[in-house]
Design a protein around this nucleic acid. Structure first.
Lengths: 156, 156
DNA sequence: ATCGAATTGACATTATGATGTCAAAAGGAA
DNA sequence: TTCCTTTTGACATCATAATGTCAATTCGAT
């Protein structure tokens, strides 16, 4: 769908065509994730926050989690507060900062995240059927390369 | 970051790792698009709606545009109404449906979209520097394949 | 022609995300 | 110490997205 292409390089044109599909896929993935874990009282956003907590080596304050996710500090704060209200996460005193408490998973939080990942496994296996592992790797490389470029652009 | 991988296929694990970066990239792309066309009174969402109108062979009612975009009917309706209030789009009588009017670009709408695409060209060219065209093609193929799979999943 | 299902736009409501401001707290430089 | 900058959580506000409902309309089946 080359809408109007006056001065685009070959790679630029290819990338333009890719971006619209990228948005579509991202929306569908989020929607699919929401459906997948709705029964656990989770959403894609909450799941992602829990994942960031799990992925971190040590407990982190909210602002650090937000930075890891590339998301807004305030939104992550709200989600973490919601999760705390439902007993999925808890706060620990931070020896290095009185206000910035550390976020940790409760037992229920760990269970919820594990349950989500158990639901995700057969779903992602089915979704990946017929895709070649090298192609997925190439896709991942292109995506992360674009991320890096956008990051350095923003910092200029 | 293989958080916990009990029963994931190789492709499934690779795809899991890809998805998080996919979300990050989508968010950054939307933010970059917003910055790029902010001076034109546009946003990524409005730009995308204008693009759908341009991409369609013939004028379409709002509901059809929304379906093409994989977006919510009501949100597209709101955006189209906003665009109409600012004189970028207009409504045409639909010979086949009294209520479902056809959305068309005004001269100003065509100008705004063309201006957005002119801004996009050097930006996308720079963003695509160093990426191989075949790799972009592979990425596009993977993305559209995943879209198709998610669509057929939803319809089950 | 008539009935029922599906589509469509309008409206309302809620949920989520984005942005700005503020005071508390921490770190660094003098 | 003192002063300044940065970080952080809390709060407020607004923008956008998502969801449900309704009546008008169209289309298909009978």
């Amino acid at each position: 769908m080359p809408i109007c292409d006056p001065e685009r390089s070959e790679a630029g044109a290819a990338l333009t065509a890719l971006i619209l599909d990228l948005f579509r896929l991202s929306n569908r993935m989020l929607a699919a994730g929401d459906r997948l874990v709705a029964g656990l009282g989770l959403t894609s956003a909450r799941w992602q926050v829990l994942g960031s907590i799990v992925a971190a080596e040590r407990p982190q304050p909210v602002a650090w989690l937000a930075r890891d996710m590339g998301a807004n500090r305030q939104n992550v704060q709200r989600i973490v507060n919601d999760l705390a209200a439902e007993g999925l996460v808890d706060f620990q005193a931070n020896p290095h900062h009185r206000r910035a408490q550390l976020v940790v998973l409760t037992a229920r939080g760990r269970d919820a995240f594990a349950a989500a990942m158990r639901l995700q496994a057969p779903w992602i296996n089915r979704l990946s059927e017929g895709l070649s592992v090298p192609d997925i790797g190439t896709t991942h490389a292109v995506v992360t390369a674009l991320e890096r470029k956008l990051d350095s652009d923003t910092k200029d």
